[in-house]
Nucleic acid binder design. Structure first.
Length: 227
DNA sequence: GGTACCTGGAA
DNA sequence: ATTCCAGGTAC
């Protein structure tokens, strides 16, 4: 599906008004939009549209947008061991590493460390948990996000069921080479650890490379409302 | 059965 | 801003 086809289909979805979420939980908005567009769910690290990646976002949500995830070959420490050593307990007692990392250490003693060609997550005890080469990150970004179509949805609950009204789509494009390294250095692209103890293994949702909506213009030079 | 991606959140 | 979190599939 190219951008023009997307616009055609999206305008029809807009006219539907509020539609019931096809999945409970945070991911319902993306699942519902994709299904109505006729896009099959997948886990391929390529854009959903021809030449652009699709993102759905609830209106008034201040959460970061995940540009891509990347873990392949990056973990130096065994992830489950890292969770057990440095994780924090959630409300049910489950250990997890759910941190948006920064260059100053967090409450668990973990911090980002910058090298010439890589960025890593380290602990103050000296251990390196995970390390990504900028060249790998840049490649993943280029493959996944040649451009971005950001779709906004109003959300409301009717009893336990969430409904979405998709009402606007924004096209962002015009990113630049080496954007990954610069953006990680200056904190525009944030590294989000998202894994927990699943008993015999670590359940890893994938380290997210994420950006606040307000910072998107720092990554993409052009934006236009397309629907 | 574990890994690595996908899709996204809350207080 | 920080601490913390969600439901999915291919292989």
């Amino acid at each position: 599906m190219d951008i023009n086809e997307f616009i055609t289909r999206f305008n029809k979805i807009k006219k539907l008004g509020f539609i019931k979420s096809l999945r409970k939980g945070p991911t319902g908005v993306g699942k519902t939009l994709e299904t109505y567009l006729g896009i099959k769910e997948n886990n391929i690290n390529l854009p959903d549209l021809e030449g652009a990646e699709l993102k759905a976002h609830r209106y008034n949500s201040d959460n970061m947008i995940t540009l891509f995830t990347f873990n392949r070959g990056a973990w130096i420490m065994d992830p489950l061991e890292a969770v057990k050593r440095y994780g924090t307990k959630d409300i049910n007692g489950r250990l997890g590493l759910y941190f948006t990392m920064s260059f100053t250490q967090n409450s668990a003693g973990l911090y980002l460390y910058l090298e010439n060609d890589a960025v890593s997550v380290r602990h103050i005890d000296g251990n390196v948990l995970v390390r990504w080469k900028f060249s790998d990150l840049q490649e993943q970004f280029n493959n996944k996000i040649p451009a971005l179509v950001l779709v906004y949805a109003r959300s409301e609950f009717r009893g336990d069921d969430e409904y979405f009204e998709f009402y606007k789509a924004l096209l962002l494009k015009g990113t630049t080479k080496d954007i990954l390294k610069e953006s990680i250095k200056n904190g525009v692209i944030l590294i989000d650890l998202r894994l927990h103890d699943k008993g015999t293994m670590a359940r890893n949702h994938g380290t997210g490379f994420r950006v606040h909506e307000k910072d998107l213009p720092l990554i993409f030079s052009m934006s236009e409302v397309i629907a």
